[in-house]
């Protein structure tokens, strides 16, 4: 088997069997890439993890393309990214095709009427878990609150919140280092 098809198949396997997206994939990738295939060392894998967390884009795609890139250059990166994305694209396309004919079905509508409030709760739950890793204290808890209000009440684009936060963080950091 050629290196690229091996790369593609390994990542599409990871893509098709990991529910819950992004971070759920990390241990699976580590086992496949570092332990089984030996494409990267543990240290290289950890480096990539750090970089994927600090670059924009989908975490799983970032990881896959970066691992592929590190192992076999640009083409390896493209193959890795496509491998991890393809199962999702195919599954969702099949569901979209099916859903088109099912969506006016009264039972499907009843099921989704029950699911919709649950989805809102499922978005809210990780906020509390993430508050810990984002180091939210009584001094900075105003940031998420103000940001949420700006977006939901005043229609400010989330993109602006990201840009402003990045710039403020950078300038504040500069200010801290010059003061020392």
């Amino acid at each position: 088997m050629s290196i690229y098809s091996d790369l593609f198949l390994t990542f599409s396997k990871i893509g098709s069997f990991t529910l819950g997206g992004g971070y759920a994939m990390v241990p699976v990738m580590e086992r496949e890439i570092v332990d089984k295939k030996g494409w990267l060392t543990q240290e290289e894998f950890t480096d990539i993890l750090v970089v994927a967390q600090s670059t924009p884009g989908l975490f799983a795609i970032d990881m896959a393309s970066h691992i592929g890139y590190k192992y076999r250059g640009v083409l390896g990166g493209i193959v890795g990214a496509l491998g991890v994305a393809l199962p999702s694209i195919v599954i969702i396309l099949l569901i979209a095709l099916l859903f088109q004919s099912f969506k006016d079905n009264i039972y499907v509508e009843k099921i989704f009427m029950g699911i919709r409030p649950c989805v809102v709760a499922l978005i809210l739950t990780p906020c509390f878990r993430m508050a810990k890793s984002a180091k939210i204290t009584k001094y900075n808890c105003w940031i998420p609150i103000v940001c949420a209000l700006l977006i939901s009440l005043f229609g400010v684009s989330p993109i602006w919140c990201i840009i402003v936060a990045g710039i403020v963080g950078f300038i504040y950091g500069k200010y801290l280092t010059t003061r020392q």
Binding site: I123, L124, P126, C127, M130, A131, S133, A134, K135, I136, N140, C141, I143, P144, I145, V146, C147, A148, L149, L150, I151, S152, P158, C161, I162, A165, G166, V168, G169, Y172
Partner: peptide, 12 residues
Amino acid sequence: MLRPTVLGLILA
């Protein structure tokens, strides 16, 4: 700065 902001995005 980005981490608390991202949390705000999810809340929104």
